Amino acid sequence: MNINEFLSYKEIDHLHSQLHTSSNNHEITVYDTTELYGEKGAFRVMQFSNHAIQGAMDLNHPERIVFEYPRAIIHLMECNAPSFEDVFLIGHGIGTIAGHFPEKRFKVAELDSEVVELSRRCFGYSQDNVMIGDGRQILEGEEPQKYDYIILDAFTAAGTPRHLISREFFSIAHSKLNSEGYILMNLMGKGENDPHINAIYTTLAKEFTYIKSFSLPSEGAADIQNIIIIGGFKPIHFQARQMADFNEIQLGQGYLIRD
C-alpha cells in the first residue's frame, strides 16, 4: 500500500470537519492524531459515535497492523490452517485483516456502505470484495463447506448483534465451513467472569468440538477488553509469543443464546 494512494495527512487535516458523516447505522468520524493509546506518532482513525474505534492506520508505516486483536487473529489463521484460501468476514472496518491477505479469497460483508467508502478514500483499501448487507443473510446464501475461516468482527453500540452470536447463526457457520475450518470472533467483554461471554462460549460449543478463548490483560475485573474466541472441528494451536499480548482464558457455562 502506498501512502500516496489515499488522502495525505495534510489533506485529511484540511478536510477534518468534512470527514464526519452519518449513515443509517452510525455516526462515523475519520481523524488524524499524533497519539493513540499513549503511543506517539501519526495515526489515522475511524471511529463511531459511541467512541468505538473501528480501525487505525500508522501513517508512517501503512502496512503495520496497529491493534493487537487483528494481529492475534492473523496468527491463529496462519497457525491452524496455513494453506487457507477462502475466508468469509463479517464487519469491514478499515479492511485490516482482508487487506493483509491480498492473495487470498476474502468475501467481506459490511452493513454500512459509508464505512466501505471511507476505508477506500481515507485508508487505501483497494480490493473489490465487499458486499453491502447483513452478514448472516449473505452467509446463508453461500455454498456449503466453502470456507476455511469465518471471521466475526461486527459491533453496534450495544455490542455484537444477537443474531450473529445465536445458536442458529453458529449452525449456519458450521454448515459453511469445510472439515478443516474454524470460526473466529472478536468480542468485547470482561473475560472469564462475564455472563454474556460465557453464554456465547456455551452456545458456540453446541456446534463446534474444539474452542479456545483469549483476552487482553485488564487492570480490573470490570474492565471491558477485546476477547477472541475460536471454534473448530480440530484441535486449536497457537504460540503464546505470537498472540500480541492476548492470554488464554477459561470460560464457564452460560445460558443458550437463541434467535
Rank of each mutant, 00 (worst) to 15 (best):
I227T: 10
H196L: 10
A157V: 01
S171E: 13
K212I: 03
S171I: 07
E143I: 14
Y149S: 05
H196W: 02
G191L: 12
Y182W: 14
G232T: 13
A173R: 01
D134C: 03
F170V: 07
D128R: 15
L204F: 04
S179M: 14
G135L: 07
K206Q: 11
F123Y: 09
L164P: 04
I211H: 08
P144I: 15
D153F: 05
N129F: 10
S175F: 00
T203K: 03
S126V: 08
L152A: 01
M131P: 00
T203P: 00
G159H: 09
N198S: 10
F123L: 09
H163M: 04
N198C: 12
D148I: 11
E180S: 14
S218A: 13
P217S: 08
I183L: 01
T202F: 04
A221W: 13
G133Q: 07
L204G: 00
D148W: 07
I165D: 03
M185C: 01
F170P: 01
S171N: 12
N178S: 11
N178P: 08
D128M: 11
S171T: 14
S215R: 15
H196S: 03
N198I: 11
G220E: 14
K206N: 03
T202M: 02
E140N: 03
G133R: 10
I150Q: 00
A199D: 12
Y201F: 08
S126H: 06
D128P: 02
C122R: 04
F214P: 01
D153W: 07
S179V: 15
P144A: 08
S218D: 00
I230T: 02
G133P: 09
F155R: 06
E207L: 11
A173I: 06
M185S: 00
